[in-house]
Nucleic acid binder design. Structure first.
Lengths: 144, 144
DNA sequence: TTTAACTAGGATAAAATTGTCCTACATAGA
DNA sequence: TCTATGTAGGACAATTTTATCCTAGTTAAA
């Protein structure tokens, strides 16, 4: 469904969100440990998310990654996916055809449209804040 | 969503289905031309589908690929996807976690479960026969 | 029986994705 | 000011996916 990079990215962002809620920064090391991901690879993904404005990084000791309160209040899962994998998941043709729309649909166009609309709706309506609070209460997990 | 191989595989299967409906075999060359896919790569995919029993191949002149009537009557899109990409699309964890189930769910487990159930339902209820007849009537397309 | 139109499949290459290593740079705190 | 703890980012390696090439084997039809 998503690329590995996107999976790590989503998990990392949720963890950073949790830490930010508690007023702490998350170091790369702690993030990678918490989500069980390769450190250097995770670094690239986070750098990307910082560049795209989804979170901030602070260098030096006590540095790390954080999401400011205002951002956190509005951040949706769809923005993380968009930043890493782009929007082809819910925009491109399910059968990889370049020109596929209502006027010249691929054989599964209509059927896919519904599923992808669902996916899109889900990603756009899911807030990082919500995911973070669920994780905080221990009802969901980031490892294993 | 699907791998390139799976996209080609689905498109190829639909074309073979159309030809089979008309009592014709589809040659590899004609298939690749019709779905605009790399010939040799498409050959591998088709060989795989033959090995997995989704269609048959006949060697020599007048040879090619075909789906017998009985098979065609029951063949679902899900079987093609399963044969090429496996069932991880609607079975694996959306965030790539190894152990993710009701008892230890990832942060998006519930939300994903619904979308993937929809996808699964769609794939399992979509028949190749239906897709082939729609293509025959010119209401859908395999190219561009 | 020869030929031409086919599929089968191994070997290899190209490209994209995933993952690692190393050096540079930033900065809080001793 | 020095040092330890951070991130930034370039270069490179491994793996997987996608694509190509070539030879062998099959068989209908001339």
């Amino acid at each position: 469904m998503f690329s590995k990079a996107c999976e790590y990215g989503i998990r990392a962002t949720i963890y950073v969100a949790v830490q930010s809620l508690e007023g702490k920064r998350a170091s790369l090391k702690s993030i990678a440990a918490e989500i069980e991901s390769p450190v250097a690879f995770t670094a690239k993904i986070l750098q990307d998310l910082v560049r795209k404005g989804l979170m901030q990084s602070v260098m030096g000791p006590t540095g790390g990654f954080e999401i400011d309160q205002q951002k956190l209040d509005s951040l949706k899962l769809s923005q993380v996916v968009d930043a890493i994998d782009g929007d082809s998941i819910y925009k491109g043709c399910g059968l990889g055809m370049k020109q596929c729309d209502e006027s010249k649909p691929c054989p599964v166009h209509d059927k896919f449209a519904r599923v992808r609309a669902d996916l899109r709706e889900m990603l756009e309506s899911t807030s990082l804040l919500g995911l973070a609070t669920e994780l905080e209460t221990g009802s969901t997990f980031l490892k294993r």
